[in-house]
Simulated scan of single mutants.
Amino acid sequence: MPRPATAFTGAQEMKKTVTWILVADHQHARVFANDGPGRGIEAVDDIALDTHLERSGDLDPHDPDTGFSAKDGVHHGYEPRSDPHRKAGRRFLKDAVAALDAVERKHGFDRLILVAPPRALGELRQMLPETLKQRIIGELDQDLTKATAPELATHLEGVLAV
């Protein structure tokens, strides 16, 4: 007996799942894209940020802030609590997150993988808006900012079917 015809035709195409890979440290951020298993990864040229962080002493040349001593009532100089070098690095990461967020709002990718050295990775986790956090499918705590696309693909084999 022949099967009844159905409304489904084989011509319907599944939407491809786009995965973006953010590879960053405090001075470099690049994004790569993967369009599915066996497709490899390609650089997303629209999102590549670079900066050069000066030494901490060169970033904040003002005299130390003034503190207060309750014991003798005399003001004493002390070093600022935050390192300006680290502050500049965090600002750079915020710019990278803002660029990703802008693309995500336009539904530019479905999933996200973060690749960064441990400290930068922790800071990225804290900065990501909830919408981006929900897209994370994996993380690598390595500095791969200088890796080529094929080298990066090798590192991602455990996280993504490249």
Results as ranks from 00 to 15, higher is better:
Val23Gln: 07
Val23Asn: 08
Asp25Thr: 01
Asp25Glu: 04
His26Cys: 08
His28Phe: 02
His28Val: 06
Ala29Asn: 03
Ala29Gln: 02
Ala29Phe: 06
Ala29Glu: 02
Arg30Asn: 11
Val31Thr: 13
Phe32Ser: 03
Phe32Ala: 07
Ala33Asn: 07
Asn34Asp: 11
Asn34Gln: 11
Asp35Gln: 12
Pro37Lys: 12
Gly38Met: 13
Gly38Ile: 10
Arg39Gln: 15
Ile41Val: 15
Ile41Pro: 05
Ala43Arg: 08
Val44Gln: 11
Asp45Pro: 11
Asp46Trp: 05
Asp46Cys: 10
Asp46Met: 11
Ile47Asp: 12
Ala48Lys: 10
Ala48Arg: 07
Ala48Trp: 05
Asp50Met: 08
Asp50Asn: 07
Asp50Gln: 11
Leu53Ser: 02
Arg55Thr: 01
Arg55Ala: 13
Gly57Lys: 06
Gly57Ile: 03
Asp58Met: 08
Asp58His: 12
Leu59Gln: 10
Asp60Thr: 09
Pro61His: 09
His62Pro: 15
His62Ile: 09
Asp63Phe: 01
Pro64Tyr: 13
Pro64Thr: 07
Pro64Asn: 15
Asp65Thr: 04
Thr66Cys: 03
Thr66Asn: 10
Thr66Trp: 15
Gly67Val: 14
Gly67Cys: 05
Gly67Asp: 14
Phe68Lys: 04
Phe68Cys: 03
Ser69Val: 11
Ser69Lys: 11
Ala70Pro: 00
Lys71Gly: 06
Lys71Pro: 00
Lys71Asn: 12
Asp72Thr: 00
Gly73Gln: 08
Val74Thr: 12
His76Ser: 09
His76Pro: 05
His76Gly: 13
Gly77Cys: 00
Gly77Gln: 13
Gly77Asp: 12
Tyr78Pro: 02
Glu79Pro: 01
Glu79Asp: 15
Pro80Ser: 13
Asp83Arg: 10
Pro84Arg: 08
Pro84Trp: 05
Pro84Val: 04
His85Pro: 08
Arg86Gly: 13
Arg86Tyr: 14
Arg86Ser: 12
Lys87Asn: 04
Lys87Thr: 14
Lys87Met: 14
Gly89Val: 01
Gly89Met: 01
Gly89Thr: 02
Arg91Gln: 13
Arg91Cys: 02
Phe92Tyr: 03
Leu93Cys: 03
Asp95Lys: 05
Ala98Cys: 00
Ala98Ser: 13
Ala98Ile: 09
Ala99Asn: 05
Ala99Ile: 00
Ala99Lys: 14
Leu100Trp: 05
Leu100Asn: 05
Asp101Arg: 01
Asp101Thr: 07
Ala102Cys: 03
Val103Glu: 11
Val103Gly: 05
Glu104Asn: 13
Glu104Arg: 13
Glu104Trp: 03
Arg105Leu: 12
Arg105Asp: 14
Arg105Pro: 05
Arg105Glu: 14
Arg105Met: 06
His107Asp: 15
His107Gln: 15
His107Gly: 09
Phe109Met: 00
Phe109Ile: 02
Phe109Leu: 05
Phe109Ala: 01
Asp110Val: 06
Arg111Leu: 08
Leu112Ser: 10
Leu112Thr: 08
Leu112Gly: 03
Leu114Gly: 07
Leu114Gln: 07
Val115Ser: 04
Val115Asp: 10
Ala116Arg: 00
Ala116Lys: 01
Pro117Val: 02
Pro118Ala: 15
Pro118Gln: 12
Pro118Val: 09
Pro118Arg: 09
Arg119Glu: 14
Ala120Cys: 04
Ala120Asp: 12
Gly122Asp: 10
Glu123Cys: 01
Glu123Val: 08
Glu123Arg: 00
Glu123Trp: 10
Leu124Gly: 06
